[in-house]
Amino acid sequence: MTKLAQWLWGLALLGSTWAALTMGPTLGLELPLTCREVLWPLPAYLLVTVGCFALGTVGYRVATFNDCEGAALELQTQIQEARADLARKGLRF
């Protein structure tokens, strides 16, 4: 099964569960009014939550992305070393 198919299955399952519960009365399924009031806008809440989670995660990871200053400095000194050594070995740059 492709990743796309897995996603579609997952969404279909969630979606149909939600639809069945919200349309409960027509199917002869009686949920308390408060339950239905919460259930009705649930997909919208879910979407917002997922969005916030995504933004939060990416934001956190950008903020904590390591800046490898040390690695860059080390590389620069090694480049000088390499050039000197290679010139000694007879390399014409």
Partner: peptide, 8 residues
């Protein structure tokens, strides 16, 4: 871990 980038 300690991975990262420089110059971005």
């Amino acid at each position: 871990g300690n991975g990262g980038v420089y110059g971005w």
